[in-house]
Amino acid sequence: MALRRPGRREQDDGVRFSRTLTLTLFIIAALLIAFDRPDARPGAFIAFRSAVSDTAAPLLDLTARPLRGIGNIGPYWQRQHELAVENAELQEQLTETRYWRDLALRLRDERDIYREALNLTPASEQERIGAWVLADPTGPFVRSRLVGAGAVRGVGEGDPVLNVYGLVGHVVEVGQRSSRVLLLTDLNSRVPVMADRSNARAVLTGDNTNFPRLDYLGRDADLQEGDRIVTSGDDGILPRGLPVGTAALDRNGRWRVRLFSDNAPVDFVWVLPYDRLPTPEEAPASLPEAPDAEPVGVNAEPAAATDDTGTIAIAEDGE
């Protein structure tokens, strides 16, 4: 703190600070507001923010530990009641899950057979990365979480983040040991989704409420109250089929989503490292040079590179 600094004057009417310094700080703050826009953030700002998050992560973890404990205590009777209700629900779900497990195993076997028959290359199935939430700022401008896993553990920008029930958001900033997750409810969040039942497409748009909107839904879209909403993967950023929530109509007749992830506090999450498909512009295929006198006909063999590209494209589409 400033104890005896030249920028301060103590006069009869009290402490006064340098007006030039104050004015300069006002200008710097105004410039930061003008240029640090969430939709077009300069690279230097992103690097600076990640560095601060990395530095603060251990301190936030230390602060969070006792608070996590306090949050879990709660009134005894309330906990007991909640546990009893939860136990009954879990038993019901377990019974249901047995059927789905058998079905999943059978479908997995079928899938393996089809893959083998079609010579499909399976997408890389990487391990999910578990991480504690270190910071839980929920303000009027941003809904994000700082999680204790970063580039060192394989987290990448855009990776989806889930809790035990469903999608929470995706990674927007990656530091060495920490990452910032933009929640689905944030004002800047846009995620392509679809109804599991009808494949009706929409964009899940956050508006800082607990129930994000379904925008760009066709006029005659086949959507019903309670339909399960999953990611569609249309943007190529998030994988297809991640559980998001259920469709619900609000008072104004607008479609919204009741998020699965709201069923539990977001205190421990999994990051799913996901290799996005590169666009043709990002990874153009190198076409073989056409031979001068090659006959082009029905019996002509296609070029090897075309074959390879085709196989890969089919394999990845299949996923």
Partner: peptide
């Protein structure tokens, strides 16, 4: 002093993930 106020505000912006400067 103003610089301390500025730093605290900036750190709050950074820790909460909001736009810097607000």
């Amino acid at each position: 002093p103003p610089i301390v106020i500025f730093i605290v505000g900036l750190l709050q912006d950074l820790l909460t993930g909001g736009p810097m400067g607000i």
